[in-house]
C-alpha cells in the first residue's frame, strides 16, 4: 500500500470533518446517524472478508450481540460508558471463541459460512423465545420477540444526566466512524494487516513461512466482531430498542450485499456501499409500488453477475485510466482469479 499513515490520517480527518459539516444540509441527521452506523458495520465485514479472506455469513450476530450487550448493561448500570465498552468486548470475546473453534478445526470457507449462519440462527431463536418474565439478566427483561425498550441512551462519560442525542449524536457516530476507519487503516499498514492479506492470498504459503495462520485468523475475526459490536451499541442508542431482528438472516445478507456492491478489498467500498444502499432502502421504504426485498435482491444478483469487484474498485480503475496514469505494478493489472480460489487460499 503506497503513501504513509500520517497522510491517510489527515485525509480521513479532513473528509470526516467536511462530511459532518456538509451532509446534514442535504439529509436529516436522524437518517445520517444510522447511515454512519451501517457504514461502520459494513467496514467490519469489509475488513474480515475483504482483507482477511474470511467469509462470515453471520456478521449480524456480532452486531446484535453488541446491541443487546449495551441494552442489558445500560439497564443494569444506569449510565452508558461501561455498557458501550462491553458492547465492543462481548462480541469480540464471543467471536474469539467461535473463531478458535472454526479456525483451529481448519474448516473450509463453505463450512465457515454454514457455521456462522447457524450460530446467527441459534442466537435469533434463543433470544426470540425469551418472552417470559423468568428470562432476566439483572434488572433487564430479555423480552423475546418484542425486544428490550427503554434503556438509558448515550451520555457524556462521567455525567449520567448529560444525554447525547439529535445532531450531537450524529457527530459522535460520524467521528467514531472516522476513528474506526483510521484504526483499520493503521491495522492494515501494520505487519499484522500485511500478513492477513498474505493469508487471504495463500494460506499454505503463509503457514509454511512460519506464521500461525489459525491464531491470526481468529484475531482478525475478533477485531471485525469488535467493530460490528461497536456499531451494534451505537445502533441500540439510535433505535432506542433492541429486537431479535438484529440477528436475522436478512440483516446478515444486507451486510454482505453492502460489501459486494461497495467493493471487497477496499476500505472505502463497504462504507459507501452500506451508506448508499441503506439510503436507497430508506427511499424505497417511502413508496409502495416496488417491494424493498425485490430491489435489494436484484441489486445483489446484478452485481455478482456484472460487477463482482464492486463500485469502488471499478471507479478507481476508471479514474486511473481516465487520468492517464499508469497503474502501479503488475499486480493491479492482473485479472482477479475466481473468488473461490482466493478464499480457499
Amino acid at each position: 500500500m503506497p503513501g504513509d499513515l500520517t497522510r491517510d490520517a489527515i485525509t480521513i480527518t479532513l473528509v470526516t470533518g467536511v462530511l459532518i459539516w456538509v451532509l446534514p444540509l442535504i439529509v436529516g441527521t436522524y437518517t445520517l446517524t444510522v447511515l454512519a452506523i451501517y457504514g461502520m458495520l459494513g467496514l467490519s465485514l469489509g475488513l474480515v472478508w475483504g482483507f482477511g479472506g474470511i467469509l462470515c455469513f453471520g456478521q449480524a450476530a456480532f452486531f446484535g450481540l453488541g446491541a443487546y450487550a449495551y441494552a442489558i448493561f445500560a439497564i443494569n448500570i444506569g449510565e452508558s460508558t461501561v455498557p458501550m465498552i462491553l458492547a465492543v468486548l462481548v462480541p469480540a470475546v464471543f467471536a474469539a471463541f467461535l473463531g478458535a473453534l472454526m479456525f483451529y478445526g481448519r474448516l473450509g470457507d463453505v463450512y465457515l459460512g454454514v457455521i456462522t449462519l447457524v450460530v446467527t440462527l441459534i442466537l435469533f431463536k434463543v433470544i426470540n423465545s425469551t418472552a417470559g418474565p423468568q428470562y432476566v439478566i439483572g434488572n433487564a427483561r430479555l423480552g423475546g420477540f418484542n425486544g428490550i425498550p427503554g434503556f438509558p441512551t448515550l451520555n457524556v462519560p462521567g455525567i449520567p444526566d448529560a444525554y447525547i442525542w439529535g445532531d450531537r449524536y450524529f457527530q459522535v457516530c460520524a467521528v467514531l466512524l472516522g476513528l474506526v476507519c483510521m484504526l483499520v487503516t493503521a491495522l492494515l499498514r501494520s505487519s499484522f494487516g500485511r500478513i492477513a492479506v498474505g493469508i487471504r492470498e495463500n494460506e499454505t504459503r503463509m503457514s509454511l513461512m512460519g506464521y500461525d495462520v489459525r491464531a491470526r485468523k481468529t484475531a482478525m475475526f475478533a477485531i471485525g466482531a469488535a467493530i460490528a459490536g461497536l456499531a451494534g451499541g451505537l445502533f441500540a442508542n439510535w433505535a432506542e430498542i433492541v429486537t431479535p431482528n438484529l440477528f436475522s438472516l436478512g440483516q446478515s445478507a444486507e451486510i454482505i450485499i453492502w460489501c459486494i456492491v461497495g467493493g471487497l478489498g477496499t476500505r472505502l467500498g463497504p462504507v459507501l456501499g452500506a451508506a448508499g444502499l441503506a439510503y436507497l432502502k430508506f427511499l424505497l421504504g417511502q413508496q409502495a409500488v416496488v417491494d424493498n426485498a425485490l430491489v435489494t435482491g436484484l441489486v445483489l444478483v446484478l452485481f455478482v453477475l456484472f460487477l463482482p469487484k464492486g463500485v469502488v474498485p471499478a471507479l478507481s480503475a476508471l479514474w486511473r485510466a481516465g487520468a492517464g496514469r499508469r497503474p502501479r505494478g503488475r499486480v493491479r493489472q492482473r485479472r482477479r482469479p475466481p473468488r473461490r480460489e482466493r478464499l480457499n487460499g
Binding site: 467469509l55 445478507a253 426485498a293 425485490l294 435489494t296 455478482v304 475466481p338 473468488r339 473461490r340
Partner: peptide, 27 residues
C-alpha cells in the same frame, strides 16, 4: 449458468435471488 465453479459467487447470487423472490411473492 454464468457462475459454475465459483461456489461463493453462486451462494451470493442465489441469496440475492431469494430476496428477489420474497419481494415478488410479497407483491
Amino acid at each position: 449458468r454464468h457462475l459454475y465453479g465459483r461456489l461463493v459467487d453462486t451462494m451470493l447470487a442465489t441469496w440475492g435471488l431469494s430476496l428477489f423472490f420474497i419481494g415478488l411473492a410479497t407483491m
